[in-house]
C-alpha cells in the first residue's frame, strides 16, 4: 500500500478473455450461494467441503480391480488381500484428504489496492487446529492464479499454558483487476489432494472481500493552459508566473531555466516546467483538462499526473464533477485522490 508506485513500470493492460463458468459450474455455484452467503470468516467443515476421486483415483481403483482379478484367477488369497488393502486405502484416503482441509479457518484480512491491469493481492489469514498441520493446499480465486500453501501446525509449547492462542498464517491470493473501481474477487477455491492425490477435496467459498482498483495510469500531455482557467474563480492565470503549474513538452524558445532537468536526466524526454502566476498558486488535476479523451482514459490520465506530481513533490488538488479535493502532498492525500478516481462514477459527469 505504501510502496512507491512507478506508473511507467506497470505492464500494459492485458486483454484477458472474459471467463465464464460452465453451465454445470453455474448450477453448482448457485447451490453454493444458497448454502453459504458471503462472510468474512469461514470455517471449513462438512457443510462446505466436497470430495471426489481424481483421475488418478479412478486409475487406482482400476489397479485394485486388476489385482483382484489376478488374485481370483490364481486363487491367491494374498493377492486378493492386497487388492482389498488398496481399495481400503482409497476409502481411508477420502477421510485423510478431508481431514487435511477440515477445521481450517479462513478470514479476509484485506487487500492491497492496485491499478487496473495489475494483480490485486488479497491477504487471507488461515488458522487451523489440526495437530499435524495442513499440507499442500491450492488456493485461487475464480479465474485467478493458483498458489499453494502449507499450514504449519501450531507449535506445542509450554510457554502458552492458556492454550487459547491460535497462530494464524497470512497467505496472499491474487486476482487480476481488469477495470478500475471495486474488485470483488469472486469465489475462492481451496483444494487439496494430499496425501495420496487420489481424492480431491475442495470448496468454493463466498468470501466478503473487496479491493479498490485505481485507474490504469495513462500518459497524456498536461494541458497547462487550462489550469483552473475555465473555472474563472481565481482570475486569469498567466503563464510565466512564479508558481510551478505543470509540465509541457519542450518547444524551441522556452526558457532554459524552466527545463525539467530531473526528467531529462531520467531520459523521460525534454519538458519545460510551466509556472503560473501568483493568482493560481495551486496545481489542479481537473476532469475538464482532458476533455479530448474518452471518460475512462480521462481518469487514467488524471491518475498518471497525480502519481507524477506526487513523485515530483508538487502539491496538487483534484477536481471532478461533484467532488473536489484540496491540494496536498502526502501519502494520505495520494490515496484519497487515487481512490476518488477509482470510485468516480462517469455517468455523473454526463
Amino acid at each position: 500500500m505504501d510502496a512507491p508506485i512507478n506508473p511507467a513500470a506497470i505492464a500494459p493492460l492485458k486483454a484477458s478473455a472474459p471467463l465464464k463458468p460452465s453451465r454445470w459450474q453455474q448450477y453448482f455455484f448457485k447451490w453454493i450461494d444458497k448454502r453459504s452467503p458471503p462472510a468474512a470468516t469461514v470455517l471449513l467443515g462438512r457443510k462446505n467441503l466436497y470430495t471426489f476421486p481424481t483421475v488418478m483415483g479412478f486409475g487406482f481403483l482400476g489397479l485394485s480391480l486388476l489385482l483382484w482379478v489376478l488374485g481370483t484367477n490364481y486363487q491367491n488369497n494374498l493377492i486378493l488381500a492386497l487388492s482389498y488393502l488398496l481399495i481400503s486405502l482409497l476409502v481411508v484416503s477420502i477421510l485423510h484428504t478431508y481431514a487435511n482441509l477440515a477445521g481450517l479457518n479462513i478470514r479476509v484480512a484485506g487487500a492491497k489496492p492496485a491499478f487496473a491491469g495489475e494483480q490485486v493481492h488479497f491477504v487471507l489469514e488461515v488458522s487451523g487446529t489440526r495437530a499435524k498441520g495442513n499440507d499442500n493446499i491450492v488456493v485461487r480465486w475464480w479465474g485467478g492464479d493458483p498458489m499453494t500453501f502449507d499450514f504449519e501446525p501450531p507449535a506445542v509449547s509450554t510457554s502458552q499454558p492458556t492454550g487459547t492462542s491460535q497462530q494464524s498464517q497470512p497467505i496472499t491470493v491474487s486476482q487480476m483487476a481488469s477495470r478500475r473501481g471495486y474488485l470483488r474477487p469472486g469465489k475462492l477455491l481451496l483444494e487439496s489432494t494430499y496425501p495420496l492425490g487420489l481424492i480431491r477435496c475442495w470448496t468454493w467459498l463466498n468470501l466478503d472481500a473487496c479491493a479498490v482498483v485505481y485507474p490504469k495510469p495513462l500518459k497524456a500531455d498536461f494541458p497547462a493552459i487550462s489550469l483552473g482557467a475555465k473555472q474563472g474563480q481565481h482570475g486569469e492565470p498567466t503563464t510565466g508566473g512564479d508558481d510551478f503549474s505543470g509540465l509541457k513538452e519542450y518547444r524551441a524558445g522556452d526558457p532554459i531555466k524552466h527545463i525539467a532537468w530531473k526528467h531529462y536526466a531520467r531520459e523521460q524526454g525534454l519538458y519545460s516546467k510551466e509556472y503560473a502566476s501568483a493568482q493560481e498558486a495551486d496545481t489542479w488535476l481537473q476532469w475538464q483538462s482532458f476533455l479530448h479523451l474518452p471518460p475512462e482514459e480521462r481518469l487514467s490520465a488524471l491518475c498518471y499526473w497525480a502519481l507524477e506530481f506526487d513523485r515530483l513533490g508538487v502539491p496538487y488538488g483534484l477536481r471532478l464533477p461533484g467532488k473536489q479535493l484540496p491540494p496536498g502532498l502526502d501519502d494520505g492525500h495520494r490515496l484519497s485522490v487515487l481512490s476518488a478516481l477509482a470510485r468516480f462514477d462517469t455517468s455523473l459527469a454526463g
Partner: peptide, 8 residues
C-alpha cells in the same frame, strides 16, 4: 507416495 505431495 505421500512425500510426493508433502511440501513441508
Amino acid at each position: 507416495w505421500q512425500t510426493i505431495y508433502l511440501t513441508r
